[in-house]
Write a protein that binds this DNA or RNA. Structure first.
Length: 213
DNA sequence: AACTCGGGGCA
DNA sequence: TGCCCAGAGTT
């Protein structure tokens, strides 16, 4: 198992390959950022940024979408995946913001989680990216990378992985590390065909050693 | 715990 | 062209 020092070394190496690893979601307000993160589930920031300009122009505040027909909202986002469900989430989420939070995006994990379409990962991303609240968002990339590098046990749950990462990585590096692992998972250590042959972390990687044989 | 939504990304 | 996926909700 990688200790804290080795884990930070690995993250540092990821940073060398992806020095500009960060979110590219575009939003001009907390509300719009929340919607963008909800939309980003199971797709790319790029795909989301393609539909949000018109969507945000049409629905500026929660009240503007709270009583909208999900079918109308769906028209704005139908070029991204899972669009029918997401349209429903956005409308319901906006309605809940108006009714339960005075149209202000809440800043606690529990309150965010209570919103439609907002799960553990989305709540963590909003807290970390938008509100500067320390959180380590564990998505499938982060989870997979953590397991492959043996930062966490092979059978660790998402919740356990989050806890271990928070203990092994300094709090001020949580957001940065999240981004690096996302990029690492997308361009270097992909789910199906990781590039072990050219990987600078091969020597300390549990999964890499297994695969290279 | 398994299933569903779905266009995008990549082989 | 085919296959899986930068999740969350439902059953």
């Amino acid at each position: 198992m990688l200790d804290s020092k080795e884990t930070q070394y690995a993250l540092q190496e990821m940073g060398k390959m992806f020095p500009n690893a960060t979110t590219s979601l575009i939003a001009d307000s907390d509300y719009h950022f929340l919607l963008a993160v909800i939309l980003s589930a199971q797709t790319t920031d790029k795909a989301v940024n393609k539909v949000t300009p018109l969507l945000f122009e049409r629905y500026k505040y929660p009240i503007d979408m709270a009583n909208a027909d999900p079918k109308e909202v769906a028209e704005y986002i139908k070029t991204i995946g899972l669009y029918k469900n997401k349209a429903k989430y956005l409308v319901e989420c906006s309605k809940m913001l108006v009714e339960n939070f005075n149209s202000v995006v809440p800043k606690t994990h529990k309150e965010l989680m209570s919103l439609s379409g907002v799960g553990r990962k989305t709540a963590d991303v909003v807290l970390a990216e938008r509100f500067g609240v320390p959180a380590f968002a564990v998505d499938t990339h982060v989870h997979r990378i953590s397991k492959r590098l043996a930062i966490v046990p092979e059978d660790a749950t998402v919740r356990e992985t989050e806890k271990i990462l928070m203990s092994k990585v300094p709090k001020e590096d949580w957001i940065k590390s999240h981004h690096r692992m996302i990029f690492w998972g997308r361009y270097q250590c992909m789910a199906r065909a990781p590039k072990c042959e050219t990987c600078p972390l091969l020597e300390i990687c549990q999964e890499g050693q297994k695969r290279i044989k």
